[in-house]
Design a protein around this nucleic acid. Structure first.
Length: 163
DNA sequence: GCCAACGTTGGC
DNA sequence: GCCAACGTTGGC
């Protein structure tokens, strides 16, 4: 199973917004970058883990986790001329932009701040932590995933454990 | 297909 | 609000 990191600006959509959403799930629309598009369209699978990252805010960092609940499908906001994310390059018969659906898994008791990432032997190498990285969707390695969960005060039971 | 100009992102 | 980084655009 693969892991990913999704960036979002909490002023436009935060993990708290996701927690309030119906079924605590949402479509992740508005991604307009081809590298990110390829990952959304081709690589993400139902059940993949997602780190949610807040950017452009007081304390940037990873604030919780989600999982992919629907694999890549055309982003309809690209077809709507009235929509902020409209893109005439994308046509329903030949969509340029894709999105997935995610569902909240956990809000961290202790967010893993960007500072903490930078000072961590494993996490300082994360694609998302690298200076100048502007991708809003990036891959996360197994080692990075485990390290973030450990730092985030993960309370989720391991798969297979009885409740 | 090169590359300068421009726009956007995101930390500080 | 500044500025570095980097993707995209468009002229040639």
């Amino acid at each position: 199973m693969a892991h990913w990191l999704f960036k979002t600006e909490p002023s436009s959509f935060s993990i708290a917004d996701l927690a309030r959403a119906p079924q605590q799930a949402t479509c992740w629309d508005g991604v307009r970058n081809y590298q990110a598009r390829n990952m959304l369209r081709d690589q993400m699978k139902v059940g993949d883990g997602v780190l949610l990252y807040h950017s452009s805010c007081d304390v940037p960092g990873i604030v919780g986790t989600a999982e992919i609940v629907r694999e890549g499908y055309p982003d309809p906001t690209a077809f709507d001329p009235a929509h902020h994310h409209f893109d005439p390059k994308s046509k329903p018969e030949a969509p340029a932009w894709y999105m997935v659906d995610v569902k909240l898994v956990e809000t961290f008791a202790d967010p893993v701040t960007l500072d903490a990432l930078k000072g961590h032997p494993v996490l300082s190498g994360m694609v998302a932590a690298r200076q100048g990285n502007r991708l809003s969707v990036t891959p996360v390695t197994d080692a990075e995933w485990q390290a973030v969960l450990a730092l985030g005060g993960a309370t989720r039971r391991a798969p297979g454990l009885a409740h």
